[in-house]
């Protein structure tokens, strides 16, 4: 007899307002315990600094590098809170994916575009985010969300610029999504 394998569908997403409150509490606890908030881009910048420290130390250990302060006086750029936090983000994301049956190797894209086009757009978008978050001194979490939580002007300006620019240009890139 043929074995029928019934695969249960993924569970529904959490209510967004509940998720927001839980995320807000996480931010408060982060400030309460560690003096600083959440962050994602910092860990990758530090990762890049670490690789540069190994392969092109003359560059990163000079004023010509944006990451000089990460490695100054023989410091290890990875010995930082944000590096541990991003490891946690991967672990937490994986746990939620596993518990909600969403673990699946997949290149997600609109049915109107090819996987190849989505792949190119993802890389370009990522690169722009890398440059933008360097100028912005943090990304949507570190500069935006933390900034708004502590009512920093920088946070409101960065968030306003990210979403404001997004809405202005969305029409030109609509074919990627709708």
């Amino acid at each position: 007899m043929e074995e029928v394998k019934i695969q249960k569908p993924p569970k529904k997403y959490m209510n967004p307002y509940l998720a927001g409150v839980l995320l807000g509490i996480t931010i408060i606890l982060s400030f309460f315990f560690t003096r600083e908030g959440l962050g994602a881009s910092g860990a990758f910048k530090r990762g890049v600094a670490k690789v540069e420290q190994i392969i092109i130390p003359a560059h990163v250990e000079s004023e010509n590098s944006a990451f000089y302060h990460y490695v100054k006086d023989g410091k290890d750029p990875l010995k930082n809170r944000l590096v541990y936090m991003i490891i946690g983000v991967f672990v937490g994301g994986f746990l939620s994916g596993a518990l909600n049956r969403r673990l699946k190797l997949k290149l997600e894209h609109s049915p109107k575009i090819t996987s190849r086009k989505r792949a190119v757009a993802a890389i370009i978008g990522g690169a722009l985010f890398g440059i933008g978050s360097a100028f912005g001194r943090g990304c949507t979490s570190g500069a935006g969300l933390d900034g708004m939580a502590v009512l920093a002007t920088s946070g409101f300006v960065v968030v306003g610029m990210i979403f404001g620019t997004g809405y202005v240009i969305a029409w030109f890139f609509r074919k990627l999504w709708i």
Partner: peptide, 29 residues
Amino acid sequence: GGAIMGFGFVIGGFCPGTSACASAIGKID
């Protein structure tokens, strides 16, 4: 920086934190 990130978000569909968590569940994009 915010303006460039706006382009990155619309074109790439993620920000760094969300792309890390999506990578963890197997999203190739």
